[in-house]
């Protein structure tokens, strides 16, 4: 194993356990939802951004607790659902699973590594979109089309945005060892 692998697989007990003030837990997801609702109206080019998903991934990764990740994902997803036109629960279930999985991953890897953050954001975006598509088709019986090439491009763009975005969110941390 190389030194880099060792660094990537470093156990979280050796890493810092990050914490955020309660206001950040409330205001940042709200701002992300508001961004999703408001900004694409004027900047259509930004409509590919799934900020609520990135927020879910970030908080789950940094909390390192699957329960916290799942609950955070559920709350953000339900809030997003309630502002959309589809039945409440679709985004909720998708983001619950995303939160759970990303928090589970964070227990084994060093989540402050930018490459890992990029990969996690990319893969979880794909997972989220596919899960949403499956749920819509199977539970609601709607003929939603999954545009695979477009989804992969969007996943890449979201992952590109995620890295600096997470670094900004890191500044809001109040860490303890």
């Amino acid at each position: 194993m190389t030194g880099y692998d060792d660094h990537l697989l470093r156990t979280p007990s050796k890493s810092r356990i990050s914490r955020h003030p309660p206001a950040v837990w409330i205001l940042v997801p709200l701002a992300a939802i508001l961004f999703q609702v408001y900004v694409p109206r004027f900047v259509v080019a930004l409509s590919y951004l799934e900020l609520p998903l990135l927020i879910t991934v970030y908080f789950s990764l940094m909390s390192r607790r699957p329960v916290t990740g799942a609950v955070a994902g559920a709350v953000i997803g339900l809030l997003q659902d309630s502002l959309s036109h589809q039945p409440v629960g679709l985004f909720g279930i998708s983001k619950t699973l995303v939160g759970y999985f990303s928090a589970s991953v964070s227990q084994r890897f060093d989540v402050e590594n930018n490459l890992l953050r990029f990969l996690m954001s990319f893969l979880l975006f794909l997972f989220h979109q596919v899960l949403f598509w499956v749920l819509t088709r199977s539970l609601l019986g709607e003929a939603l089309e999954l545009q695979a090439p477009q989804t992969v491009v969007y996943a890449f763009l979201n992952a590109v945005v995620a890295v600096p975005f997470f670094l900004i969110l890191d500044r809001l941390r109040t860490d303890t060892r």
């Binding site: 609702v37 409509s47 590919y48 997003q80 502002l83 959309s84 036109h85």
Partner: peptide
């Protein structure tokens, strides 16, 4: 405003 879904 727009809805919160991707490409809504």
């Amino acid at each position: 405003g727009t809805s919160s879904g991707l490409n809504s």
